[in-house]
């Protein structure tokens, strides 16, 4: 294996002290512009990459933030990361993504292991897209690691922890009003498991909307990924005597893709025979147009 270039190699190549090279690479003062440029060029030429973890241990700069996601196949997370990265760049911080439900299935063991890893690596802060356990919050608090929840509520007893949530009840009422305007009163909610805290609000809002607009609502639960949504909806529709619902409301992007595939396989016309609604924004297929 080729030896990795070190700080000492950059020092030798530039003729500057290790101290000066270190300060130049970490953008600290006390180094002239000419020396800094010389160091950066030498580092580039040698392929030297600073050991950020070691730097942080020495300086305690708190420069690494973790984003805990649950199934990154959801387009929602790509836009979310764009917003997070754009903001962190201004403070010279970087984000790492850790998925606790990569296959759409959450396990507590994965969460526990991840939280320990984040503490060990002295992560500066956490943005969590699903409700973490009370135990995880207590551990992160013990190590002074702040947490912000997005699209999910803090666990019970951690009400003061920051959160950015969506008014899913209000959103569901908007959906209900729109569907009622079309005269659609037979709704099927293809929902992800209640482990994701937004499920309860969406379901409650849809129930209220169904009641307000005289519609019937059936809830069909699937694991939180495209393949599971496809399988669950297929089995549901294959049940003898089951008719197509007039509307399928998918819990998120991966699930709407599963539902669309089921309808495509069965040559069901969307929206002529079945209308589709989905929570979460998505660019959508190109053949769809905005009204």
């Amino acid at each position: 294996m080729t030896k990795k270039p070190t700080l000492r190699d950059v020092s030798r190549a530039t003729g500057l002290s290790v101290y000066t090279v270190s300060r130049a690479l970490s953008n600290r003062d006390g180094v002239s512009t000419a020396s800094r440029e010389r160091v950066l060029k030498a580092a580039r030429d040698l392929g030297y990459v600073p050991n950020r973890a070691a730097q942080e241990l020495r300086r305690n700069t708190r420069s690494s933030v973790a984003v805990i996601t649950a199934s990154t196949s959801n387009y929602y997370y790509l836009d979310l990361m764009t917003g997070i990265q754009r903001t962190l760049r201004h403070s010279d911080r970087a984000a790492i993504v850790a998925d606790v439900a990569a296959e759409g299935v959450y396990t507590r063991a994965v969460e526990d292991s991840l939280v320990h890893d984040l503490i060990q690596s002295r992560t500066a802060g956490v943005i969590a897209t699903l409700t973490l356990s009370r135990r995880s919050i207590q551990l992160l608090e013990k190590w002074d690691i702040p947490v912000v929840f997005v699209d999910s509520a803090p666990p019970e007893g951690a009400d003061r922890v920051p959160s950015i949530t969506t008014d899913n009840i209000g959103a569901s009422m908007k959906v209900g009003a729109h569907l009622a305007g079309h005269g659609y009163t037979d709704w099927l909610f293809l929902a992800y498991p209640a482990r994701w805290s937004t499920r309860a609000q969406c379901e409650r809002g849809l129930c209220e909307a169904a009641s307000a607009y005289g519609a019937t609502l059936e809830v069909l639960e699937s694991e939180n990924d495209t393949a599971s949504a496809y399988g669950t909806l297929s089995r549901y529709l294959d049940t003898p005597g089951r008719a197509l619902p007039r509307v399928i409301i998918a819990g998120n992007n991966p699930m709407v893709h599963g539902a669309l595939r089921v309808l495509q396989d069965r040559a069901v016309k969307v929206p002529d025979e079945v209308a589709i609604v989905a929570f979460d924004d998505s660019p959508g297929p190109r053949c769809w147009t905005l009204h």
Partner: peptide, 14 residues
Amino acid sequence: MLNEDSETIGVLAA
């Protein structure tokens, strides 16, 4: 689709 504007949510959270 329900547009939750996740990019803005990301900015606020960060």
